[in-house]
Design a protein around this nucleic acid. Structure first.
Lengths: 236, 236
DNA sequence: AAGTGGTCTAGACCACTTG
DNA sequence: AAGTGGTCTAGACCACTTT
């Protein structure tokens, strides 16, 4: 299980900031020397991290730490697509930003004990010029020290890219539970929906390494013109 | 790209029935000799098929052709789970079985040209004793020659297991599009729902090897007590 | 004890990117 | 031309299952 130890070390390098998002790793021979293992063992460890999109290999160029930019967010974490059109990056408008105590449900989803402080962020996502998604995000204040509305709004990347660049929190996977509901008044107003309308509700827990929960998000989606897409394959 | 050729050969062995579901493959050394490659190349090809759940490796015992039994169906293809309970295998009740001409939408989903014959199968799936899912399945008659209601009903395994055992059609992946709708009268009656009720609608295209479409299925789900779950990771 | 897959090694050669 | 990752080889040794 040498390759497991190598993988763990590489993850540590990323979490500690020693290997920054977008930066190149040493070549495989050098890594092999550093860890005192063969190149094949390095490749096995890197193989897994590439499969998880944590690292990115480019033949002839090198191996790089994955950045949570728009492209990666769209293909890995954004599953709302137009019914008969190509996919599109949403326009995100901040609706609310607050700091308060976690509810019991939030604490459970985020693995907190007691009434820890959390940030609560609400966004309305627009597609093709129309409001389509109402997001409520909850994150533990302890994991994102110093976060505030100004810095959050001033970010130049995706929300997950901001978590990664500003707080060293790399989101690597997410679990979602989806159901159909009648829209509630607050979301109806934000999404310009009549009052009984069916909407999709998505509860997502996003995790960083070692399946540690980092974000809880509930999305209300108007699916008159958009679908939630899912591909069933592999599923490790 | 030798390992690609080996993988293709192994898939052919499964599709042709030469390697039957549940049967053991020759050991890695013998495979290496048969294909005139090294064991490492065999391992690489088998690695990928194991990741796709087409093959199953058991240390000390051997490598086996994956069977689409209840366990595999549940963890790979059945994503409707109780909100606060462990998952459960559904009781499937046949509601309709018919042979007719494909609609344009079905023909497109299944990659047919013209008004080919299709089987249309409707099921009601029960969970915890209650009707929860209304399935409409469409499959091309040409891909399932000789299928009839008697043999379909008499199957002793899952529907996908039946495709595999009786017709050599192995489902390996599925694409789904999910949305919220108000239930229509026919589904409302089958699921005992009042008449405006929000339900989940899932359009699924299931594929066999080489992404060849094999089944189109629309599921209407009562999500008052159940969720559609999805895990975002890897996503090759 | 014999047979299976699981891990690791050391090295060769190829394909691609960059200067 | 030099440096990177991608493929393939041949073999050693380990862990597990079965007889």
């Amino acid at each position: 299980m040498l390759y497991r130890q190598v993988k763990r070390q590489l993850i540590n390098d990323i979490q500690s900031g020693f290997a920054a998002p977008g930066a190149a790793l040493p070549n495989e021979k050098d890594l092999a020397q550093r860890f005192q293992v063969s190149v094949g063992t390095i490749r096995r460890a890197v193989d897994e991290l590439v499969a998880e999109h944590v690292l990115l290999r480019q033949q002839g160029r090198g191996t790089f730490v994955g950045k949570l930019d728009r492209e990666r967010f769209m293909f890995q974490f954004f599953k709302i697509v137009p019914r008969d059109r190509p996919s599109e990056f949403p326009e995100v408008r901040l609706h609310k930003f607050a700091k308060s105590r976690a509810t019991q449900m939030e604490a459970q989803a985020l693995g907190l004990h007691g009434n820890q402080w959390v940030f609560r962020i609400e966004n309305v996502l627009h597609l093709q010029g129309q409001p389509v998604i109402h997001d409520r995000i909850t994150i533990a204040a302890a994991m994102f020290p110093g976060l505030n509305q100004a810095s959050f709004t001033a970010r130049t990347t995706t929300i997950y890219g901001h978590y990664q660049a500003a707080f060293g929190v790399t989101i690597v996977e997410a679990d979602e539970r989806v159901r159909a509901e009648l829209v509630l008044p607050d979301s109806a107003q934000l999404l310009n929906l009549a009052m009984p309308s069916p909407v999709l509700r998505i509860d997502r827990v996003a995790h960083t390494f070692d399946r540690k929960p980092a974000e809880f998000r509930t999305s209300i989606v108007d699916t008159r013109n958009f679908d939630y897409v899912s591909r069933m394959r592999e599923m490790t």
